[in-house]
């Protein structure tokens, strides 16, 4: 196919590029600022990447270092500070622990339940499915207050349990997996029974492997939601930095620090946003499918 010049196409591109500039603006600001020295940030100079001229670090000077000792490269300084001013590694690790635990537990709970709802006849099955559908209507964020009180009564606030427990059951996960399992032919399950598998073996050896695409999509959905979640950690984690998730850590960075810390703060923001953005760029189709899963209803 050859593309001839067309006014219509050009116009569409112009509009879309303008949109893209606005969409990308904060990403540009974030990365560009994270590369600049405080002076460049204050004056709005330095172009995209900053001049990367050496500058004297303020904290170093106040601690009595000589000017020569305190000279640093802006980009290095910003990113080093992101890790030294706050336990960034710890935050990232917490983020990984929390998101992976949530996903693992959600799978462990949702897959057997979804299999039972899709393929087994048991007393109360219709009522059970109605319960799942009803729970789909309740946003967990909305009931954060009573959940927080219940956890507080159990003495569980400020713990990994508080970060993870409320998310262990995902009505959406159950619903999604059930819809997928409905499409698995009954014959396959009967064949597995004839081959000597019990119901548990059928779930883990037959249903789960065939459901990998759906499960992967759900994994992306779940991990993105919980890596980025700020509201819930903000409520149940108070003060104990060793339990902070990445957004909490970044928020603390912002709360504590004054104007000339924009460089390191933007470096932190970049560090927190980068894992998912890179993963997204590498596997766009899967991510878009996963995130828009809720559209499958």
């Amino acid at each position: 196919m050859t593309y001839r010049f067309s006014t219509r196409q050009t116009l569409a591109h112009v509009v879309l590029i303008l949109g893209a500039v606005i969409v990308l603006l904060p990403f540009y600001v974030m990365i560009s600022t994270s590369l600049k020295s405080p002076a460049e940030i204050a004056t709005g100079t330095g172009g995209v990447f900053g001049s990367q001229a050496l500058f004297a670090d303020q904290t170093c000077l106040t601690l009595g270092g000589s000017k020569a000792d305190c000279l640093v490269r802006p980009v290095l300084d910003n990113y080093t500070k992101a890790f030294t001013e706050a336990p960034m590694w710890r935050y990232l690790l917490n983020g990984v622990i929390v998101t992976l635990s949530i996903f693992a537990l959600q799978t462990l709970v949702a897959v057997p339940a979804a299999y039972a709802l899709a393929k087994l006849r048991f007393w109360g099955r219709d009522a059970a499915f109605a319960l799942v559908l009803f729970c789909l209507l309740i946003p967990v964020h909305a009931i954060a207050l009573p959940l927080y009180l219940m956890l507080a009564k159990l003495g569980l606030t400020n713990s990994y349990a508080a970060l993870i427990l409320p998310w262990t059951v995902s009505a959406f996960g159950i619903f999604l997996m059930r819809q997928f399992f409905m499409t698995v032919p009954d014959d396959l399950i009967d064949a597995a029974r004839m081959d000597g598998m019990g119901e548990f073996a059928i779930i883990w050896r037959v249903m789960l492997p065939t459901a990998i695409p759906a499960l992967l999509a759900f994994a992306i959905f779940s991990v993105v939601a919980h890596w980025n979640d700020y509201f819930w950690p903000r409520i149940v984690i108070t003060g104990d930095r060793s339990l902070f998730t990445p957004p909490l850590g970044l928020r603390e960075f912002k709360g504590d620090l004054g104007g000339d810390f924009y460089g390191p703060m933007m470096a932190s923001a970049t560090i927190i946003a980068v894992p998912l953005v890179v993963a997204f760029l590498l596997a766009q189709r899967r991510f878009i499918d996963g995130i828009t899963l809720s559209g499958m209803k």
Binding site: P185, D187, L188, D190, A191, R193, M194, G196, P209
Partner: peptide, 17 residues
């Protein structure tokens, strides 16, 4: 079913994909 010493071939073949 597994203890009856029978084997079954299904209409949809029921192969593990």
């Amino acid at each position: 079913a597994a203890d009856r010493d029978l084997a079954m071939v299904f209409q949809s073949y029921a192969l593990y994909p």
